[in-house]
Design a protein around this nucleic acid. Structure first.
Lengths: 397, 397
DNA sequence: TAAATTTGTTAGTATAATAAACAAACTAAT
DNA sequence: ATTAGTTTGTTTATTATACTAACAAATTTA
């Protein structure tokens, strides 16, 4: 039974976490400054800091500048007390990163995927993880967790229920990987992963209510409310790509029709481009990258096509802004490549359609880490999990 | 500065609240049962219960049944320690209720509104509140708060920024009423109020992730996540009536086009009914009530019209289910009157369009308290606020 | 050189939960 | 009727942890 009652351990855990987070975000900082900043007594801070030193989660780095009295002892967060792994499992690639506890990328592994069958992909995935584990420097806590972002529906138990573009169904990925490496594993939807990456390290650092639009082959939305990912009842929140923006519109593979992603995704872009019957372009060479080149060299049809996609992105973004009243919308994933061609159309549509009060103080950005958002996002989630655990478990004895 | 640190008072407040809520929800109950149930030590429970007795928030009602030993002392929540006021400020009515601390309606006041100008309405509103205050029985805490649900955009400071159907703009309603009665006042959007009412006392009792669709003249959505109302950055969340479901669709007064509420609200229903040019029906007599009579007497056109409205309700509900993955959707406000004609169309649309995994375990209901949802909802919010305050302030001395 | 200031530690105090013992009130078995 | 066992609620002693206040060390400033 999970206890809901208050007690001394709870108090200590709250305060120890508070001190650790203060050091994490405000370092270099002294004990006295922490006491001042968070409102804990100097003695309390001293004793919690000493525990954190023992835990090796922080370290002292000699005396700092005096401000007219005894010189303070500078405290720093121990980035390198452990490392975390984040994997972005894409439709035709695997990107793996090893990060330190501050989320800095230490090692990166890229693999192209030519096959999508589970049996093959899982082997490549395991080899990527092995490589990253082997590449990790010696540290006190070792690899603290493995996070994996997946383009599909993931439930609360880490099972991939369905990943349409991979052709996967009902795969207990978490159990599989956890058994293999004996390290805590988190399976996360790719949009959620990206959202968290941008919230912690990217365009969303300053905000706590963020909608991250993952615009790739399909469209998914990562929802961050009050600084935390929102999952819904079973973990399926954010399937905004299947919101209907055109009643009786195009048929969708999901069984519905008129879904947003049929008009505003990479899939939509390529499909419309096909209709233009461009000379010298085959099904193999057709790609966003190519369309961007054409647009950059002045092809009006393609430019208009991007504007149309931008307009339709605006439609869906308008809808979620009116529903959520977020502080920030971040557009991420593959379509960010076309930022220069999309941005104005999106902004224009929002300006002309979204409720005026909802537009006030609203920030619309493109993802900062683009390619890395999802990988560093899941890595960060494992770090959070580890630090929370560290603070509560380590003082249990 | 609001303290974020943990300390003894925090622990006590958590536990005292826990004990109070247990009594509120599980009464009649003994000290021993509480200890067993929440996991607090018997002595701790005893001392907290004694404080709550002193606060008059609970009372003892003599010995209960023995289960083979000393007979327990039965504890009950003191419903009547104070009273709360909830107002539903509609477009053409004011409904006011006085409730006890359990949300039971004690007195009810109804006023028709023929005028909408702020100056007139505010006077009627004040008289309704006065009547309710005067009708309240003598009690230890008196009137603990006044909640007012308003059909418009309300910000975090209790200002009504705009209420289109009332023709109001930038009105500091909270300050006005608070100055008048010197009792804490909460101004709440009508959809949020309804959502909370249904969550606490109605169709949503069992669930913590609920979307309440307030389908009246327009459409608003009250969003309950993890058991709490979600407000967004400025308090404007839930304007789902202005989500676009038809690109380049009908023009909306909000400046956009193709908005959901143009196809699925009471406004849409009446407009479509007008187009049917029904004999013997004037602009004055046209109403949902009348259309229901016609449908009930077998008018095919009207029946089809209701089915069409139901289908369009399904479109928007589909969208928010895919986005939120909620446990429950509750349809409330005026259109609930047409439940019998709408229900099947809505369910059919959801069944055929909404993602299969999102449909699993999903509950779609109509509001239980219909006419009263909003009024008891805001009243309940004031009760919550009062009880929270009571527990933390009363032990501060 | 002395006074003032800042930092970090320590000793004692306060608060609130817990464990354990206990008394009172009751049931059930003999 | 007597006795044993059970349940309830209180009390006492213990424990964990934050807080207050005093203090020493280190440093700047007058």
């Amino acid at each position: 039974m999970k206890t809901l009652t208050g007690n001394q351990q709870l108090v200590k855990q709250i305060n120890k976490t508070l001190v650790l987070e203060t050091i994490l975000h405000e370092a270099p900082i002294s004990r006295a400054d922490i006491s001042q900043k968070v409102g804990l007594n100097k003695g309390t801070v001293s004793s919690l800091v000493n525990e954190l030193l023992e835990d090796q989660l922080i370290y002292e780095s000699g005396p700092g500048q005096s401000s007219g009295g005894r010189r303070p002892v500078i405290l720093l967060f121990n980035d390198k007390a452990g490392f975390s792994i984040g994997i972005d499992l894409g439709v035709n690639y695997i990107l793996g990163v090893l990060t330190d506890l501050r989320g800095n990328i230490i090692v990166e592994v890229n693999k192209k995927l030519t096959v999508r069958s589970y049996e093959v992909v899982i082997e490549i995935l395991q080899s990527v993880i092995s490589d990253l584990i082997n590449a990790a420097p010696q540290s006190h806590y070792g690899i603290v967790g493995i996070g994996i972002g997946v383009p599909g529906l993931v439930n609360n138990h880490g099972e991939v229920l369905v990943a349409p573009n991979l052709g996967w169904k009902n795969i207990n990925l978490r159990e599989e990987i956890e058994n293999c490496f004996d390290i805590p594993v988190l399976i996360e939807n790719e949009a959620n992963a990206g959202a968290y990456g941008e919230k912690l390290y990217g365009a969303g650092k300053e905000n706590d209510n963020i909608l991250y639009i993952s615009a790739g082959i399909g469209i998914g939305v990562g929802i961050i409310l009050n600084g935390k990912l929102f999952y819904g009842m079973n973990g399926f929140s954010g399937e905004a790509g299947h919101m209907i923006v055109q009643v009786n519109g195009k048929d969708c593979t999901c069984g519905s029709s008129g879904c947003w992603e049929l008009y505003a995704s990479e899939k939509a872009l390529l499909e419309e481009a096909r209709k233009l019957k461009l000379t010298g372009i085959t099904e193999e060479t057709l790609s966003i990258e190519l369309l961007l080149e054409l647009a950059n060299s002045g092809n009006e049809d393609i430019i208009n096509l991007f504007h149309s996609i931008g307009m339709y992105l605006g439609v869906g973004i308008n809808n979620i802004i009116n529903i959520f009243n977020p502080e920030q919308v971040i557009i991420g994933n593959r379509l960010t490549m076309a930022k220069d061609w999309l941005e104005k159309s999106i902004e224009k549509f929002i300006k002309n359609h979204t409720m005026k009060y909802h537009q006030k103080d609203l920030i619309i950005s493109f993802s900062k880490h683009a390619y890395y958002s999802a990988a560093i996002g899941v890595s960060a989630q494992m770090i959070d999990q580890f630090l929370n655990n560290a603070v509560s478990i380590l003082d249990a004895q």
